[in-house]
Design a protein around this nucleic acid. Structure first.
Lengths: 250, 250
DNA sequence: AACGGTTTTTGATTCAGATCAATAAAATGA
DNA sequence: TCATTTTATTGATCTGAATCAAAAACCGTT
């Protein structure tokens, strides 16, 4: 199974189905429009792969940063563990996404990255990426877009945490998952969540019981079906409404 | 008054007090260690200045992105206005900080930037910055650190919004302001807030009444004095404790 | 200085979500 | 397979912050 949607927001996923020798490389390049020579230059950089078993750490907070990681397959969470035991999941990450961007700022990782299923990543030595970026402007530009997209994503989470109610947060979360699965060629209405209710809660600023109740409520209203980690969305439109306006009638 | 702390986290502020012909340029370069030639190259890019009066927009969501803005003097808020009237202040920005990073991702601004006092910014055409970055690696590297720092900052806000109580959030906010004023050579214990209680509330995920009550509480405990927008911190250490652990005794 | 609008403070009440608690279901591993 | 642990659901209660409301302070303008 190929990594999909790599390094990119919206492009034709079907084009990625072709075979690919060098890891997630073609995905990394495709939307940028590199020629073969440039791809081979890049290939020397993004060659190392690494397997992370379920529950394993890809990296930990405060260790030295040297490489970014592109998720070739699998599923990760990143989380911050504050002194005083406060913990916060800052994101869930799927195939094709890039991990470690926060570490550039101080050359130290600022969070833990933990695999939620057996996963495989490509290592991208950051110094090399910067070096190559100098000779392939479109790659550098693409990298900047990825960093910026991460900022936009975080702002979205801030809106969620700052102004949404429990049910809206969960609807928002499910729609986000749905969309990301869809981009990768999976069903947008039927999927398995990899994380626990507690992890969802941490990400959404809710307690696990509240998450569970919100799931139950959405199920009662037959907007979704919940079977433990399996989610079936029956009514995408109604779920979108849930996200938007809490005050409106059911 | 010179912009301070520009483009940088921690360095000797006093070195910035020297006069500076080309806007915030020296600050932009100083921590990166550019030579005079490189500075002059950069100077051609970062020359345009722009004044924004109190209440004015530096940019609005969904307008085309072409330049970043370095705050030469003044104070801004950035905020997202969702369809449905949901609004969220995503940040407060002071002299020396860079605005517009979120817009790189889609070439459209994703939020509004509004001056909270009469302000002045330097325009930094982004295409030019990328171009020059190719020839001055340390500048590019520095720029990457700035983007990454923004991500780290946002993660900090996510922790705040996801797991802190009202009083902790306000303590956290005040300490953040304090530190940023200190970096710029101002008092870390006595300063004027530029934003309203409502804006603080939006940023912290609280209603303005809750913000006001939290201020009053901290004042009663003589940790701070509040005189409308003026804040005097009497006990920094105790304020830090407030931030850390809500459960501990007062 | 007086005016009108905005901002802030404070009180009373309500409510969403946290907390406490107990059970059930699922996953894991021997 | 069964035993143990982890995860999820659901109920009862409590609480921190939202909401509603009213007054006071502050600001910019004329």
């Amino acid at each position: 199974m190929l990594p999909e949607g790599f390094f990119s927001t919206n492009f034709d996923v079907s084009r990625l189905r072709s075979s690919c020798a060098t890891c997630s490389l073609r995905e990394l390049c495709l939307p940028v429009g590199l020629d073969d020579r440039e791809i081979s230059v890049l290939g020397e950089v993004v060659s190392h792969k690494k397997k992370i078993p379920r529950g394993g750490y890809l990296y930990r907070a405060s260790i030295k940063f040297q490489t970014l990681y592109a998720i070739k397959s699998g599923f990760f969470k990143t989380c911050i563990l504050e002194e005083g035991g406060r913990q916060q999941v800052t994101g869930f990450h799927m195939t094709g996404e890039l991990l470690g961007l926060d570490a550039i700022s101080s050359d130290l990782h600022t969070c833990d990255a933990i695999a939620l299923e057996n996963s495989e990543v490509c290592e991208i030595p950051f110094a090399k990426l910067e070096e190559i970026g100098r000779t392939i402007p479109s790659l550098m530009r693409h990298f900047h877009k990825i960093m910026s997209r991460e900022i936009v994503r975080d702002h979205g989470v801030m809106v969620l945490l700052g102004s949404m109610k429990a049910e809206e947060r969960l609807a928002s979360f499910l729609l986000n998952m749905s969309r990301r699965f869809a981009i990768r060629g999976y069903s947008e209405t039927s999927f398995n969540l990899r994380m626990t209710r507690e992890e969802i809660g941490s990400y959404l600023g809710l307690k696990l019981e509240t998450v569970s109740r919100a799931f139950s409520k959405l199920q009662q209203e037959s907007v979704i079906s919940v079977n433990n980690k399996h989610i079936q969305i029956h009514d995408l439109e109604r779920l979108k409404l849930k996200m938007g306006n809490s005050s409106c009638a059911t």
